[in-house]
Simulated assay, not measured.
Amino acid sequence: MERKAWCEGCGTELQVSDPTRPGYVSPSAWERENVVCRRCFRIRHYNEVAKVDHQPDMYLSMLQEIGNREALVVQVVDLFDFAGSWIPGIHRHIGGNPILILGNKLDLFPKSVKVQRLKEWVYRTAKELGVQPADVVLTSAAKGYHFHEVAETIEQLRQGRDVYVVGTANVGKSTLINRLLREFGSGEEVITTSPYPGTTLDTIQIPLDDGKQIVDMPGIIRNDRMSEWVDPAELNEITPKREMKPKVYQLQEGQTLYFGGLARIDYIEGVRQPFVCYMAHSLYIHRTKLENADEIWKKHRGKLLSPPKNDADFPPMKRHRFHLNKKEKQDLVISGLGWVATGKEISKIDLWVPEGIHVEVRPSIL
């Protein structure tokens, strides 16, 4: 194979020698125009996904290259999983370039949500994480919410420069760029997307009319999210697809909530109060007595309590204790799974998740 080519779907260099490596195409497919690798072909036509090996250090070094250029940086974050979709220390990698934050997946939130309040929360949280955004726009790449505002804001802020679109894996970067191309550009969907993290394997450059380009960067992999541990076949069970309809449980002291076989909440001390669960509709939630919790967990995890069907590859469960303060409603956040909004009563809660999964408590965002 003399010529070099790159997959237009995921950006990886194409090759015909090794079917087990990224970028493989059959020799017959190699002769076609607009070649995509076998992996992208299967994702597009059969919705087939498979894990691939990622090198976080390589991705971070690619991110640091932005600091050597004049560009607008667009960081896409997942509003459903803000903490888990933030790139830690991003301000240290991009030099003095301005950064626009696009909060994606707004369509997952109840229609009653106050968008301006949510936008202010994103802006405030970004500043706490060391970033002074040039602007914040909330959108839905899947539904096209506020897309004229997205396009206008990008054009206004880039001032004739390249645009680098960055984010952690599975925040919707490629879906967002495809939407921009369909509505304001070529009208074609060129970048492969799938529900599994890490679809884009290398940078993808898309030329603009003024000679500059939009660059879709590979997603940064964060292993502290639940979504990175779930098998591809089970990922849909924990990934919201439509507007969340929160499930409300009135818990009293000595009760437990299971979230499939992935996490559990033990209500250790406190008066009866509501626990509102913002998670995928398809995730099974089960309530029981705390005194029976360990026995039910051992007996039914992987069966009644699933996913995961097979927990052999999961880290051991770790307990995190939280004391709620009665000052305000708070969210117990499980990165890659969702959150539980608590009441305002003083209470003691144990949250169990696989070791290494990020959890936090924050003031309620809804």
Rank of each mutant, 00 (worst) to 15 (best):
P88M: 09
W86Q: 05
S174G: 02
H54E: 08
K105T: 03
Q64D: 15
E189P: 07
R222C: 09
V215C: 11
R158E: 08
A312F: 15
S28V: 15
V49F: 10
L257K: 02
K241N: 11
E345Q: 04
L176G: 04
I204T: 07
P27D: 04
V115I: 14
V171F: 05
E234H: 01
Q255Y: 08
V16A: 12
P207N: 02
I334K: 00
S347M: 02
D313K: 14
G172H: 06
I349F: 05
R182N: 12
K212M: 06
P240N: 05
K303R: 13
E269N: 13
I154P: 06
Q205M: 13
R44Q: 09
G96W: 08
N325M: 08
R3D: 15
L60Q: 07
G11F: 00
Y249Q: 02
W229Q: 07
H54G: 13
G144I: 01
V340S: 01
V49G: 10
A312C: 08
A293N: 03
S227D: 13
V340L: 03
R21E: 07
T139W: 01
I285H: 02
V340D: 04
K114F: 11
Y284L: 13
L262W: 01
D311C: 14
K299P: 12
R182G: 14
C10M: 06
T239C: 04
Y196L: 07
D313T: 15
I268R: 06
N34I: 11
K4S: 12
I220L: 15
R321C: 09
W30F: 09
R182C: 15
R161H: 09
E183M: 04
V49W: 12
Y46E: 12
S335Y: 06
G356M: 06
D53M: 15
C277T: 13
R38Y: 15
S364F: 11
L14M: 05
H91W: 13
F184E: 05
V215W: 10
D294G: 13
M58C: 14
Y258K: 00
G95D: 11
R38M: 13
S140P: 04
K173F: 01
G260W: 00
K51E: 14
L332Y: 00
Q273E: 04
T342M: 04
E243F: 10
F314P: 08
I87A: 01
F259T: 06
N310D: 15
C37A: 01
L305S: 06
N34P: 04
N97S: 10
I191W: 02
S335H: 00
L290Q: 10
D53I: 14
Y267T: 03
H93S: 13
A71P: 04
V76R: 02
E243R: 08
K247R: 14
I357Y: 02
R287P: 02
D135W: 12
S347R: 03
E360T: 10
V25E: 00
P133D: 03
I66V: 06
D107L: 11
N325A: 14
H300N: 15
K348S: 11
R161P: 07
R124E: 08
M62V: 02
E189N: 07
G172N: 05
L118T: 05
W6R: 15
R42P: 14
L305R: 02
I220V: 13
C277G: 11
K318P: 07
E13H: 08
G160Q: 07
I334V: 07
E65L: 12
R272A: 14
S194Y: 03
S347D: 05
V131E: 01
T239F: 01
I238Q: 00
K327G: 10
